[in-house]
Amino acid sequence: MVTILFDGIAYGMLLFILACGLSVTLGLMNFVNLAHGAFALAGGYITANLMNRLGVSFFLCLPIAFLFSAAIGVLLERTLYHRLYDRSHLDQVLFTIGIVFMTVSAVDYVMGSGAQMINIPDALRGRVEFLGGSIGVYRLFIIIICGLLTILLQLGLVRTRFGSRLRAAVDDPRVARGLGINVNLVFAVTFAIGSGLAGLGGALGAEVLGMDPTFPVKFMIYFLIVVTVGGASSVTGAFFASLILGIADVAGKYYVPKAGAFIIYAIMVLVLIWRPQGLFARSATR
């Protein structure tokens, strides 16, 4: 019981780190990016390759994964994505599906279709006893890292000047420009951080989630669930949605393995019918 809850939390935290970038671009900037998983893929692959081919330490790989994905993110944002911010949702969907198709095939072509193996350091292996349950050390590591990042992210959004600039830029880009905010830069940095976190999530999650070329497609629905169920209003919503999803998924697979993902999808559809703005959205007055 404790083990399942704990695994669920770890899984949920991981989902949050993977998806929080999307919750900003999709939730706040209203940009439908189905290719978000591609950044996680980049993070997972760079880590696996650095470790397996060059013997780089896992701990060093994590920040590299972040930077690598962030760099790809900012590059794509500046060259391609930013052109699509004011296009229709259909265009955004088509474009990002195109990116997914290209990524999946390209990675398959270059790296092969097999899963990437990441051997986590011995320090993170094994299990500890906790409240009568047995907990994987690596899961604990994920929870700590992701928890810290969550706090940082929340502080960054609420307390810093960058956070208020982002909120202003999202609310009304023209007014924000009028106030002297470099909206393009704000969006680019936001996109970079979101992609970077996805990359870090990919590196951390490769061992738990599995990392092969179809990762962006397989987990797209999970990321989207986190964002839509969490609601567009805040990162906190996405956080709670991630935790619920993580726990429900792990518990569901354990207790009712036959129902599998069916329950998750059903719950998502029900939530969206019940509250189209998301579970944690403040009810709009409009």
């Binding site: 949702h89 629905i221 989207l224 839509t228 069916f262 059903a266 998502m268 559809v269």
Partner: peptide
């Protein structure tokens, strides 16, 4: 919104796939 529609339609297709699998 568009997004809700995307998610609901996607969700229904995936539910059917799970159902057919099971």
């Amino acid at each position: 919104s568009d997004l809700t529609r995307l998610m609901v339609t996607l969700g229904i297709a995936l539910m059917l796939q799970e159902l057919a699998n099971r």
